[in-house]
Amino acid sequence: MKKLWILLGTSIVLIFGIGWQQTTVQASTVWHNETPKVLRGIWQKTIPSKYLKDKHEKIVRHQAYRITKRFVSYAATGLDDYGYKVSQTAKVGSTYYVRGYMQDGSTKYYRTFKFIPISVKKMSAPVIMGSGQGVFYKVRHTNAGI
């Protein structure tokens, strides 16, 4: 009988405890539909020829992002540029995630970009030719073709 009362008391405490704590829990990530002002502009990464396969060729390769309120475009020297329409953006800590899509006929190609502002003129962004993140610098114009 004593065990029954203990079990009943514990059940009542748990039911009321959970009942009092049932509030709406929002996700920690709030998604918006345009890029934040801190990301907007032209961001460029320059790769000197010493890092390319043909070290005798004095070519400087550029990779660049052009970020506006509704679009994220990127290009590299010698490649076509690709533009994604921004569908959602979120800030998690100091990292910005930008989701966008590129439409080809009736097919949509989705991509999520990860941008980390380092300073006003410096940002970590996905490397266009290669993998991982690279440091891009804010510039007024670019030679990458966007």
Rank of each mutant, 00 (worst) to 15 (best):
W20A: 14
Q21I: 13
Q22V: 03
Q22R: 10
T23S: 13
T24V: 09
Q26G: 08
T29M: 00
W31R: 14
H32I: 06
H32K: 15
H32R: 12
N33M: 12
E34T: 15
E34G: 04
E34D: 14
T35D: 09
P36W: 13
V38Y: 02
V38E: 13
V38M: 08
L39H: 13
R40V: 03
R40E: 07
Q44R: 15
P48F: 08
P48L: 01
S49H: 15
K50N: 14
Y51G: 03
L52G: 02
K53S: 14
D54Q: 07
H56C: 04
E57F: 02
I59H: 06
I59C: 05
V60D: 00
R61K: 08
R61M: 15
H62L: 03
Q63C: 10
Q63S: 03
A64G: 13
T68S: 11
R70W: 10
R70M: 13
F71D: 14
V72F: 01
V72I: 06
V72M: 00
Y74I: 06
Y74N: 12
Y74R: 03
A76Q: 02
T77A: 12
G78Q: 06
G78S: 10
D80V: 03
D80W: 09
D81P: 00
D81A: 00
Y82W: 07
Y84D: 04
K85G: 01
V86A: 09
V86Y: 10
Q88N: 13
A90S: 15
K91L: 12
T95S: 12
Y96T: 04
Y97S: 05
Y97I: 05
G100D: 08
M102R: 00
M102G: 12
Q103T: 03
D104I: 04
T107Y: 11
Y109F: 00
Y110H: 11
F113L: 10
F113A: 06
F113W: 03
F113H: 12
F113D: 07
F115R: 02
F115I: 00
I118T: 13
S119K: 09
S119P: 04
V120M: 04
A125F: 01
M129K: 07
G130D: 05
G130M: 02
G130Y: 10
G132C: 08
V135G: 01
Y137T: 07
K138R: 09
